[in-house]
Amino acid sequence: MKRLSSQRLGVCLLSLALLLYPIVFSSPFYRDIGVTFLLAAISASAWNIVGGYAGQVSVGHSMFFGLGAYTPLLFYTLWGWPPIAGIPVGIVLSVALSVAIGLPTFRLSGHYFSMATIAVAELIRIYFGTWTLVGAAIGLQGPATGRGWWDLTFRSELPYYYMFLAVLALVLGVTFAVERRRFGFYLSAIKASERAARSLGVPVRQTKLQALALSAAFTSTAGSLYAAKTGFIDPDSGFGILVSVQMVIIAALGGAGTLFGPLVGALILIPLQTAVNTKFGGGGSGLTFIVYGGIIVLIARFEPGGLSELWQRLAPYLQRRARAA
């Protein structure tokens, strides 16, 4: 009972910190870091549903992200619709794509699944780079100045911040609900052993498809939010492999398959990335990759379970020390 209440206290403190952050740090620079952090946390949490809980390591989630980013801007470019109208369409398209991808690729296991998802994402990226309707290699642009709030184009970072925060809360809330339900137990059974899960009567295929569809819907939303904020999308920033890799690293760093893992991962990685970018500027365009590579090596070598597992091992020790003191 005590453990539950301390957890609840932690969640309250975290929410309070996130709510107050842009008011305390009011310079555009820090607000922008906050917005980037929220976006990364949203997409990593969305990936976490299928990659963490179900253990299906997709490295092609950028396909949903890109689809979610392209759809609103495409509607704006073609018919001048406000980007907000494209968000649900992007979600529908992503869910349809996830089913189309999931049906053939869920027969694959381990590396083969990861490879197949990479292949599909790359396929879409290259295709979008040659498709003139979606701007080919140049990409698409959103409205330069908002005609109203529905264009989601604001001068200040503040509206973006609270919009993203609300979506993050929604994603985490759904993940929490999934974790508690039979669906969540199905997912962890599939993660532990697919064959065993099937022999116990878990509808493996259907469960995996549902998890992928749910994850795709949220990843697509993250993509739409990115497009709304940046007002620009091209094949590399939408479908590039780095987009997928970032989701995987953030979730793995914090702890894949835990509710707050991706949030913790983003909390560490995004400020680090911004620090690297501000310190080295344009001269070190590859340095972000180096940081990612280093983190992959460190996680794989020392903490495959991510920071949440490290914390679980460390917590009893710290408690004992606190009691002794």
Partner: peptide, 11 residues
């Protein structure tokens, strides 16, 4: 595109 497409189909 052809390589990735064939790869997914073959898998």
């Amino acid at each position: 595109i052809v390589v990735y497409g064939l790869f997914v189909a073959l898998l």
